[in-house]
């Protein structure tokens, strides 16, 4: 564990290395530390707070390869002023980074087991570091199953990579969309419909979920109907975040602070909260 910063609210300077377009509204930004001293180490599932000069700060999950040192990768959907400002940075420009914050996907617990990753929408981005990790240490894990649901074909992230992952041994990658166009020859239907094409071995499977809360509720139900125990299901939760270190109170979710107790939770810990409204 890295030592804690003297002032966790003050960002470190990073430079924009590259920005590339993933979809019509989503971009991936690569940041490099402006000073050699800054570390870009992180664990899959963690997030950073990204500061755009004078505009504001955003909590963004790290979506790059944890074993590729020297830069931090973020996939950002441009939906508001701050996200737009972030993805509009040019190479060489500065962005402030705090973090990484939060806990990580249970990749250690999943060793020797099949790994099922279920992503919805932008939720594939926080899961991508876990995919990299499993593929790099392929022999440590059983089968890798990636189920990915998006709104429409033009919303799907990382399509080339999805195809490349699907060619890896013992790896099944299925994508589906809620709304397929005429040219779409892939699956149409919500992400849970993909479970028809997967043979799960519930006793030796760990599932990791990331996507909108409702989507994760449907997926947990599906996983349980296939015999998975709630203790083998993990999900990444989202709430408003201002400080990321447990001071601002915004990200509270029942007894938890998403920023420091999450964002990844075992389903057993949040199940009763997920079933309640407006928690």
């Amino acid at each position: 564990m890295a030592t804690l910063p003297a002032d966790p609210m003050v960002p470190d300077p990073y430079r924009v290395g590259q920005v590339w377009k993933e979809t019509f509204d989503t971009f991936t930004v690569a940041l490099e530390p402006a000073h050699n001293a800054a570390s870009s180490a992180f664990s899959p599932g963690q997030f950073s707070m990204l500061y755009v000069f004078g505009v504001g700060e955003l909590p963004i999950s790290i979506s790059g390869d944890p074993e590729e040192p020297g830069r931090l990768i973020y996939t950002v959907r441009s939906v508001g002023q701050a996200t737009h400002a972030l993805v509009s940075r040019k190479p060489g420009e500065m962005v402030g980074v705090r973090g990484p914050f939060g806990g990580c996907w249970p990749l250690a617990e999943a060793r020797g087991k099949d790994v099922v990753l279920v992503a919805g929408g932008l939720g594939l981005a926080p899961l991508r570091p876990a995919i990299y990790q499993v593929l790099r240490h392929r022999e440590d894990y059983g089968r890798l199953i990636v189920l990915y649901g998006g709104r429409s074909p033009r919303d799907l992230l990382y399509r080339k990579e999805l195809a490349a992952w699907a060619r890896q041994p013992d790896t099944q990658v299925l994508s589906t969309v809620d709304y397929g166009g005429l040219s779409w020859r892939g699956h149409v239907g919500v992400v849970t419909t993909l479970f028809r094409y997967v043979r799960l071995q519930p006793a030796r499977t760990v599932a990791m979920l990331c996507g909108p809360e409702i989507m994760m509720r449907f997926v947990t139900r599906e996983l349980e109907s296939h015999g998975l125990q709630e203790s083998d299901i993990y999900l990444s939760m989202e709430r408003n975040m201002k400080c990321a270190v447990g001071f601002c109170g915004h990200c509270q979710y029942g007894p938890y602070f998403i920023c420091k107790d999450g964002p990844v939770f075992p389903y057993s810990r949040v199940r009763s909260l997920l079933e309640k409204h407006e928690i």
Binding site: D25, V79, G150, G189, G211
Partner: peptide, 15 residues
């Protein structure tokens, strides 16, 4: 029906 309800929610829409 469950899948259709889920699909109706349009959960990935931006707003």
């Amino acid at each position: 029906l469950e899948a259709t309800r889920f699909q109706l929610l349009d959960v990935y829409a931006a707003h």
